[in-house]
Each structure stands twice: as structure tokens, then as C-alpha cells.
């Protein structure tokens, strides 16, 4: 257990010490909130959707989590490049514990980042309607964070080096985000898009966070938690298997 803890702590320390990274990674969510929130707000209201910022904010929180979590997972590649990975791979501890420590650490960092984005959304006028459900929102955020950190780790275990990073961003992370219902309601979508959104695990993360913060989830919170849970279990299993087969 101490192994999991110290590797978790390592991720946290690295996060807290990289202030420029924290600030830098807030620029994107802020831009989405301001440009999309205020840009599409009037149209969304005219179409009868209500206040777009209310709808968009949970999506942008999920975006912050998605990016931070994937990045934390893919950080394995950095550790390989800069050599630290070897140190953990030859250690006399099960690699499952190494993977768990890293993943929980990355997920905690992503949840913190999501919380900071949440505070930003308050600044642009977002008002959660179910304040008592804030802890539930944090649970949803954390589940989403674990899911994508594990996915990032699994991807990093397969990639040979950092060359593939851009590819993953464009072919995996961006589609996951844009097809998730973070930016638009899932109701009444064209069949094909609706189907894709249903397979996209981020849809359930977004829906869970949104459901907890402003109510009216598209699926239901039970469905959201269950789907996220299944994905988390599967990705942790796959991720730790791939991680355990890593060579240097």
C-alpha cells in the first residue's frame, strides 16, 4: 500500500510544482466557456434550450478532466524518455501497484484540475442548481478522471515514443471530446452521431457531472455510474496488463 501511496504522492507533487502547467491548461477551458458560452448562448436560448452556460459548464469541466487525465496517463512516455520509468519497472513490487499508484495520482490531479475549472465556470455565471449534490459531482469527476488516466497509461504502454502523441490527441482525445455531449444535448441527434456518442465513455462522465450539478441527466445517474465503473474496471485491467509487459 505504501508503494501505491508514494507514487500517488509523486504525481501530486509534480502537479503542484508545475504552476505554469496548471495555469496554461486553464486557458483552453476558459476560452471554450467564453467563446462558445457567450457566442452560442443567444442562439441556444432562442431555440428554447435555456441558458447555454448552464448546459456548457459541466461539459467544459469534463473537458478539463479529460485532457489532464489523458496527459497524466501519457506521462509514462515522458518518464520513459527521461529514464525514471526504469526505476519503477525493476523495483521488487508488483507492476499492478505501480500502475495503480500512478493512475490514482493522475486521476486525483485531473479531479483537482476539474475543480479549478468548476470555480472558473462560477466566474462566468454558472450556477449549480443542486448544491447538496456537489460531492456526487466530485465522485463523477473522479470516476471520469480514473477512466481517462487508465486509458492514457494503456495508450502510452503501447506507443513506442512521443512521436505518436500528436496522433493520439487528434485521433482519440479530440473525437472523444467533441462527440461526447459536452457541447450539445444528446437528444434528437442524427442516428449515427447519437450512436457514436453512446459508445463514447466521456458522454457518461459529462452526463454524470451535469446530472449532479444541474439535474436532468440524459441517461440517468445510475446508468452513468455503472457505465463509468465498467469502463474503469476494464481499462485498469488492460492498462495494468500492458504496463506489466513494458520493456525499456
Amino acid at each position: 500500500m505504501e508503494v501505491v501511496y508514494i507514487l500517488w504522492l509523486r504525481q501530486l507533487k509534480r502537479y503542484v510544482r508545475s504552476r505554469s502547467r496548471i495555469v496554461g491548461s486553464l486557458a483552453q477551458p476558459l476560452l471554450f466557456l467564453v467563446a462558445l458560452g457567450f457566442g452560442f448562448g443567444p442562439i441556444y436560448a432562442r431555440a428554447g434550450g435555456g441558458n447555454y452556460i448552464q448546459f456548457l459548464a459541466p461539459g467544459v469541466i469534463a473537458m478539463g478532466i479529460l485532457f489532464t487525465a489523458m496527459f497524466s496517463g501519457i506521462e509514462v512516455l515522458w518518464d520513459r524518455q527521461f529514464g525514471f520509468l526504469k526505476e519503477t519497472l525493476v523495483a521488487p513490487v508488483p507492476r499492478l501497484q505501480v500502475m495503480l499508484g500512478r493512475t490514482l495520482g493522475g486521476a486525483t490531479v485531473a479531479t483537482l484540475q476539474g475543480t479549478i475549472v468548476f470555480l472558473l465556470t462560477l466566474g462566468v455565471g454558472f450556477r449549480p442548481t443542486h448544491v447538496v449534490q456537489l460531492p456526487l459531482a466530485v465522485v463523477m469527476m473522479f470516476l471520469t478522471a480514473v477512466l481517462f488516466t487508465a486509458l492514457g497509461t494503456a495508450v502510452a504502454a503501447v506507443l513506442e515514443d512521443m512521436q505518436g502523441f500528436q496522433l493520439i490527441m487528434n485521433l482519440l482525445v479530440m473525437p472523444l471530446f467533441f462527440l461526447s455531449g459536452a457541447l450539445f444535448p444528446l437528444a434528437g441527434l442524427p442516428r449515427a452521431i447519437g450512436l457514436v456518442a453512446r459508445i463514447d465513455p466521456l458522454s457518461y462522465g459529462v452526463d454524470g457531472i451535469r446530472g449532479a450539478l444541474i439535474g436532468a441527466p440524459h441517461f440517468s445517474l445510475v446508468v452513468d455510474v455503472s457505465v463509468l465503473g465498467v469502463f474503469v474496471a476494464a481499462l485498469l485491467a488492460v492498462g495494468s496488463y500492458l504496463f506489466s509487459r513494458m520493456q525499456v
Binding site: R10, K13, R14, R17, S18, D79, F82, G83, F84, L85, K86, E87, V90
Partner: peptide, 15 residues
């Protein structure tokens, strides 16, 4: 059974 000192760097430079 073993300990190792690598030829290439293997420290966490952020710690």
C-alpha cells in the same frame, strides 16, 4: 534479489 545503477539517467528531476 538485485539493485541496479543504470548507465542512463533514471531520476525524477521534478522531485
Amino acid at each position: 534479489t538485485f539493485g541496479i545503477i543504470f548507465q542512463d539517467p533514471s531520476l525524477d528531476t521534478e522531485l
